[in-house]
Design a protein around this nucleic acid. Structure first.
Length: 420
RNA sequence: GUGGUCGUAGCUCAAUGGCAGAGCUCCAGGUUGUGGUCCUGGCUGUUGCGGGUUCGAGUCCCGUCGAUCACCCCA
């Protein structure tokens, strides 16, 4: 295969079936977010590279993975790798215009130049939801509840996924009580994040400068921090969502900017990467706006790639997807007599004006083929236009029941059939 | 960026170093105005690409591109 004939690595072609799949995911994201009173926003795909450099020191991973280049005017620009900087920029510019709290979501495509693997591509869709201007644990619970209900809307249950809930502030308080400074905190959190993946000796040597040991971290995690989670857990319990959440201080998340509640959603079988993740970032907007706007915020992201894998692995979710994917055609008009094509076109046009999905053969073909095609398209009804004109036949394909009627009576008949 | 595995028809896969195949899909026929099954026929390949070894390479070796998994990272 010629190289220019295939999509770039990590990028996807969306054939009709792929598009249908993507539309299913996107429509559920939108439906549930709106149900929660979130409003949709979007920003530019290209941003100034400085926007991403601002909160990251030179050489940071996030900058290494940027698709960045100079445009024709010599301006350094980048394809967006995430939404939060754009959101912070937009909020800082217009926050006075919007009532607080702002409940915003977006469904956007993002780009990261990294080695692809299962659940990770270079281009992906991500749902993002953020509540800006409210620091209460009620906002945390609202955000987590939205994440849970999104998952449920895809057909997942508590058997399939779990929200692991943690709290950065509990960690920071613990580390401060052990005399850690900022640098030591960073090391300790990084090690906490790797407890399950790296051998104890290695972690202990990394922890040396902090005066802590793996045992200390594990002790803190094991002790839990019920008082830190209580307000959020209570609010989730009142919604009947406790069964989806598991307090777990071993969740740290890589980002430095989180300041409070953090959470990740995992599949129960732990086959996949995180399905969603987020947390509270009360200082980020202030930092990105050079202090001009100071608003608390909490948000999370959910990508389409890992989600798609879990849908495929979960029968209930994939049957939901299949029914959304099913070919839908209301009426297939069969042109039994080619000399009546004009009359058929007239009927086709009126069916479409009724709002019915209507199809028909673009060239002369045998009746049998046409019924076959109606079947293939999943049509519920066939209208046969032929020698009997001005009479036509309306056939319900599933029951094979057929009736003959005046073509002038067809529209009202179809109206009652489809309740349009 | 590092390491492992794998690349054969549109898809899923066969072929001991010895004639590149099957199923599905797709297309066209079979019933002279009625559909899911059926029957017949047909299409598609520089075996990802480029070198090398060999009388002979889809098969072995090297490179390259791509896929995939792990590391890294996960905004």
């Amino acid at each position: 295969m010629c190289r220019v004939m295939q999509a770039l690595p990590g990028f996807r072609d969306f054939y009709p079936e792929d598009c249908a799949r993507r539309n299913h995911i996107v429509s559920i994201w939108r439906k549930v977010a709106k149900r929660y009173g979130f409003v949709e926003f979007d920003g530019p795909v290209l941003e100034s590279t400085d926007l991403y450099r601002k909160k990251n020191e030179e050489g940071a991973e996030i900058l290494e993975q940027l698709y960045s280049f100079a445009d024709r005017g010599g301006r350094e620009i980048a394809l967006r790798p995430e939404m939060t900087p754009t959101l912070a920029r937009m909020v800082a510019a217009r926050e006075k215009h919007y009532r607080k709290p702002m409940k915003w979501f977006c469904v956007s495509n993002f780009f990261r130049h990294e080695r692809q693997q299962k659940g990770r591509l270079r281009e992906f869709l991500q749902f993002n939801a953020d509540i800006i201007g409210e620091s209460s644990p009620q906002a945390d619970a609202e955000t987590i509840a939205l994440a849970i209900d999104l998952m449920r809307a895809f057909g997942f249950t508590a058997e399939n996924f779990v929200v692991r809930l943690s709290d950065r502030k509990a960690w920071m308080d613990f580390l401060a009580s052990r005399g850690c400074d900022d640098a030591a905190c960073r090391i300790a959190l990084a090690c906490a994040d790797k407890l399950e993946r790296e051998p104890e000796e290695k972690l202990n040597s990394k922890l040396a400068p902090t005066g802590l040991t793996v045992a200390d971290l594990k002790g803190f995690i094991a002790a839990g921090s019920p008082e830190a989670f209580a307000p959020v857990m209570d609010a989730l319990a009142a919604r009947g969502l406790t069964g989806f959440v598991q307090p777990d201080l071993s969740i740290v998340r890589g980002l430095a900017y989180y300041t409070g509640v953090v959470f990740e959603i995992f599949d129960r079988s732990k086959n996949l990467r995180a399905l969603a993740g987020g947390g509270r970032y009360d200082g980020l907007i202030k930092g990105l706006s050079d202090g001009s706007v100071d608003l608390p915020a909490i948000g999370f992201g959910m990508g389409d790639v890992v989600l798609g894998h879990l849908i495929d692995e979960t029968p209930a979710a994939s049957s939901l997807l299949q029914s959304a994917l099913a070919a839908s055609c209301d009426v297939y008009v069969i042109i039994a007599d080619e000399s009546k094509r004009s009359e058929a076109l007239h009927i086709i046009q009126s069916c479409r004006e009724l709002g019915l999905t209507t199809d028909f053969p673009l060239k002369s073909s045998k009746i049998g083929k046409q019924f076959q095609e109606a079947e293939n398209l999943g049509a519920s009804h066939a209208v046969v236009v032929g020698q009997e004109w001005p009479l036509v036949k309306l056939k319900h394909l599933a029951t094979r029941a057929e009736e003959t009627l005046e073509h002038t009576a067809l529209a009202s008949k179809l109206k009652t059939q489809f309740k349009t």
